[in-house]
Design a protein around this nucleic acid. Structure first.
Length: 421
RNA sequence: CGGGGAGUGGCGCAGUCCGGUAGCGCACGCGGUUUGGGACCGCGGGGUCGCAGGUUCAAAUCCUGUCUCCCCGACCA
């Protein structure tokens, strides 16, 4: 993409209505637009990051056999009444609206009910199970107070997967498989070593503990107690001696930390399938209950999390796996020979499949460098009169101050090899 | 929802206490000088001061109501 054609631009002004670093940086770099509190639009560069995160999550969900669907945001009241989750006293962050006829609707905040309801026409026999169904979709929650930029919004992008199993034993197997897939997702995002499976409250979903995935960082909203050696943690909300005993955690090894919840999985048992009357028939012709699990990953929250976690005083520092482009090609000056050389290099990089942001604007070097840093593109490549005369290109990683002088072949090789995911 | 802060060109702000119809920086346009870490000079376009009502000869400024945003708390698949 040529920056001269990109409609967004960066700004030196820090937005006054944001204190969260992720929102400040993403707005300054032109990745997102704030529509209102807790509601953000994704601009070209931001959308690329969001799609990259989705791609990784999607690949890992597909790898365990997940089947992707897209459910609806508009929800009929009746299925939610069957599970007793329509009442505001039960779930207080609903957005609700009405049809012209007067019938009440909900705007989806989670999708257990519609998923189960939709599956009721397809799941009849033991031969139809087990299955994983997932979607990546916008969720709407009427939070009393949105905050922390993309970390807690009212409209946000989430991946939610649901498993349906024939027995408790089968359910546990499916559940563990997803836990493993989640670790892979966080590894690929560069958060693996800082992310802990954490026992937490089951909320409105289940009476059992849920598992949260908490990334340790000071910006976290959650307080958790971590056993780093055992790679397990427990959320403060369920941190009692009784629970520690139940979970077999050693209190003396737990250290209090802050974390951001980057995923959450639940054992739903038969709560939703029973309530909506969905069963299967076993080999003996007997009707049997279906055991469910559900598995969430906040895609947009992860984007905010990554923006805040991987940043420095000059701006964003995207991991290559999610960066909107791999390299920022800065052309300095408008010498015709330099322009020609940079244009050709851009073509070559693009043809080689190296995502390139080509700064072909009529701007001064300092501005281009500052923008490359603020946008957080992993590599910066400079073409100028100076490099042309020296017969080299300058390649620099966003994470280092060192500049390498390389010939074209070496540049292409370095960029093709770097950060394959 | 409780407490606190704030709404003034696209963005960041000053002006409000002590009413006299709006100013600065960024961004934008034109001209010139510049060109390896967010250049400089000159000229120029753009706001009726969140919204509604009130007081007054006169309201960004005072009064009332209301909406919105931010922070702390409560809450949080």
């Amino acid at each position: 993409m040529r920056l001269s054609q990109l409609f967004t631009k960066t700004t030196k002004n820090v937005p006054a209505d944001e204190t969260a670093r992720n929102a400040q940086l993403l707005i300054q770099a032109g990745y997102i637009h704030k529509e209102m509190a807790g509601v953000y639009a994704y601009l070209p560069l931001g959308l690329r990051v969001l799609e990259n995160i989705k791609r990784i999550v999607r690949e890992e969900m597909n790898a365990v056999g997940g089947q992707e669907v897209m459910m609806t945001a508009l929800q009929p009241r009746d299925i939610w009444e069957k599970t007793d989750r329509w009442d505001d006293a039960k779930v207080d962050n609903w957005f609700k609206t009405k049809l012209k006829s007067g019938a009440e609707l909900g705007v989806g905040l989670t999708h257990e009910e519609p998923i189960v309801d939709a599956l009721s026409g397809y799941v009849d026999s033991y031969k139809d199970l087990p299955i994983y169904i997932y979607q990546i979709q916008n969720k709407f929650r009427n939070e009393l107070r949105a905050k922390s930029g993309l970390l807690r919004g009212r409209e946000f992008v989430m991946k939610d997967m649901y498993s349906l199993a024939r027995s408790q034993e089968e359910h546990e197997k499916l559940y563990d498989q997803v836990i493993k897939a989640y670790y892979k997702v966080y590894d690929r995002l560069g958060l693996g070593d800082k992310t802990y499976r954490t026992y937490a409250d089951g909320g409105i979903f289940t009476d059992r503990f849920s598992d949260e995935f908490q990334t340790l960082t000071d910006i976290g909203e959650d307080t958790i107690y971590v056993d780093e050696a055992a790679r397990i943690a427990i959320n403060e909300e369920v941190y009692t001696d009784e629970n520690l005993a139940k979970l077999g955690l050693d209190k003396s090894k737990l250290v209090k930390k802050r974390g951001v919840e980057v995923g959450n999985t639940f054992h739903l048992e038969t709560k939703y399938t029973d309530a909506l009357g969905v069963y299967y028939t076993d080999e003996n012709g007997q009707r049997q209950p279906i055991i469910m699990g559900c598995y969430g990953i906040g895609i947009s929250r992860l984007m905010g999390m990554l923006a805040e976690y991987f940043a420095d005083e000059r701006g964003l520092v995207w991991p290559e796996a999610v960066a909107p482009a791999k390299v920022y090609l800065a052309r300095l000056g408008d010498d015709p020979a330099v322009v020609k050389q940079a244009d050709e290099l851009y073509e070559k990089l693009t043809k080689a499949g190296v995502e390139t942001l080509y700064d072909d604007r009529d701007a001064r070097p300092g501005e281009k460098f500052a923008d490359a840093d603020l946008m957080g593109i992993p590599y910066r490549l400079v073409v100028s009169k100076k490099t042309r005369e020296a017969g080299v290109y300058e390649l620099k990683s966003r994470q280092s101050t060192e500049v390498e002088q390389l010939g074209e072949v070496e540049v292409m090789k370095a960029l093709a090899a770097a950060g394959q995911t």
